[in-house]
């Protein structure tokens, strides 16, 4: 019985791996549960960094984050809530406030016309980027060796 258990667990492992991978349309990244980082340089020279929400052929939607502090404040109330940096309102729609290890972060959603964008670079989440090589290094050889020993 215990001899069959490793094989059974390998099946579970394969299912887990297959379940983890997913293909998410860039037009609906947020709904699909995919995190994509983006750094954007606009034609005006402004530089933005944040999380990409969607990318279509005419629009780029992203969440930018602003760490609340002395210079960065939340102003207004209810639907008129906005983020101000040194007294200047941040363009976009206020989404909410997230709590992180480094303090409270205000999230602002901003839609950009594709023509406004001079350049945008796309990034994977840091955790996923570092975990990928580790898993692919160990899982393949691990499965092979276990199968060799189990059969």
């Amino acid at each position: 019985m215990i001899h069959r258990a490793p094989l059974l667990l390998l099946v579970v492992l394969a299912v887990c791996c297959a379940g983890c991978a997913r293909s998410v349309p860039m037009a609906a990244l947020d709904a699909g549960g995919a995190d994509v980082g983006v750094a954007v340089r606009l034609r005006s020279g402004e530089v933005l960094r944040g999380r990409l929400i969607s990318l279509t052929d005419d629009e780029l939607l992203l969440d930018t984050h602003h760490r609340l502090g002395v210079d960065v404040r939340l102003e207004g109330s209810a639907e008129a809530r906005r983020v101000e940096v040194r007294g200047e309102a941040v363009p976009g729609d206020f989404v909410g406030v997230e709590s992180g290890d480094t303090g409270r972060i205000a999230v602002v959603r901003r839609a950009l016309d594709a023509d406004e964008v001079a350049r945008a670079s796309f990034y994977r989440p840091a955790g996923e980027a570092s975990l990928g090589p580790i898993l692919s290094t160990f899982i393949g050889p691990g499965i092979g060796l276990l199968l060799a020993l189990a059969i």
Binding site: C17, C20, A21, R22, S23, V24, P25, M26, A27, L29, G33, A34, D35, V36, L55, R124, E128, L131, G132, L135, S136, I139, G140, P141, G142, I143, G144, L145, L146, L147, A148, L149, I151
Partner: peptide, 26 residues
Amino acid sequence: DVSVRSRGYVGWGTAIAAVAFFFLGQ
């Protein structure tokens, strides 16, 4: 259509490594 492949930790390299290490193990 532009789709992002996320959390795809295993691929053909993993399968090839598994086969190679299977024979090595045997």
